[in-house]
Design a protein around this nucleic acid. Structure first.
Lengths: 173, 173
DNA sequence: TTCTAAAGTAAGTGATTACTCACTTTTTGA
DNA sequence: TCAAAAAGTGAGTAATCACTTACTTTAGAA
């Protein structure tokens, strides 16, 4: 990975997250990265290739999250940790998540593979705690953290912490 | 409102919701509506004007929702009804909501005025039920219905009803 | 009927789009 | 050391973009 390649990826991620993928031109990306436009196509083939490179880079960074979840033994810890995920997004990771969530609405680009591993760790956790419908409970948590992520990524409210304790109290944690 | 004006609005709504506002051209809208492209600009000034006309039309249709919420006396009924909102979106309304939610990520276009009236009816409802932190509880419900709406609008899961009963049981309803 | 304003069209406009190509510069391994 | 491969550039390309303009058609009131 060249220095200029990294600059292209960083510039593209920020622009795609801020203004949207479709309304960001490759010339703007080149300009922000301080690079000739042709270089983008030399390295990433086309605009979709650039997007895929960003997505793959982000997935690699997030991979550790799933490994951490699988290492937890207590099912309560698993559920707690999953709920905490949206609250532990760092400023550095924000653009990637904002891009990912915005792409959900652009049809064909992103398929939602991201959330399946989390759900598959959540269902047995609720099973061990003898909930009546572990599948539905897992789905509810997924919906909840998606809603939380939207709230946090669009930073509409500052008091996210009080929401967190409201949730945890409903699970008697 | 001319017949062709309505055809333009309908075509634009469907295209904006399906492919995204930025990646839908005015020529595609004209083509789908069976109308010359110039007519769009005669009636709606520019592409943003077309979007605003769609948004305003949608807001008028949804207005009845808020009036219904204000007519409910029992705070439990209010909360129940709010939770039910995402489940009662008709197929006809789907494109409008999909467009609205996708625009959230496009910055400047939409500001989120939509959800404030719901929240302002939710806070006193939790207050009457003597919850410790009505503000946080209302915010949690808002996050929840946003997450539910995303789930339903992107129709990822069919078993939405079992999620609903999971939620209601957590509020002892 | 006739006049007028609105509705509607077709063919443009310059700017921007994603992408290519011929070329130069830099890096690298034998 | 030196040739080949990779990195990088800048000036193109045709297509598409939002939007305009000159014009014709339609509808309704006087």
């Amino acid at each position: 990975m060249t220095e200029k390649q990294e600059k292209i990826l960083k510039a593209a991620l920020e622009l795609f997250a801020d203004r949207g993928f479709a309304s960001t031109s490759t010339s703007k990306v080149a300009q922000k990265a301080g690079v000739s436009e042709g270089l983008i196509f030399k390295h990433f083939t086309n605009k979709d290739g650039l997007l895929n490179a960003i997505l793959q880079q982000g997935h690699e960074k997030i991979e550790g999250l799933f490994k951490e979840l699988n290492s937890l033994d207590d099912p309560k810890d698993v559920i707690k940790r999953v709920i905490e995920i949206p609250f532990t997004i760092s400023d550095e990771e924000m653009p990637f998540w904002r891009l990912l969530y915005s792409l959900k609405w652009q049809a064909d680009v992103y398929d939602g593979t991201m959330s399946n591993p989390i759900k598959s760790v959540l269902i047995p956790a609720f099973g061990k705690l003898e909930y009546k419908n572990p599948e539905a409970e897992a789905q509810l948590i997924m919906v909840l953290i998606d809603g939380l992520a939207v709230e946090i990524l669009l930073r509409k409210s500052g008091n996210a912490q009080s929401i967190k304790s409201s949730i945890l109290s409903k699970y008697n944690f």
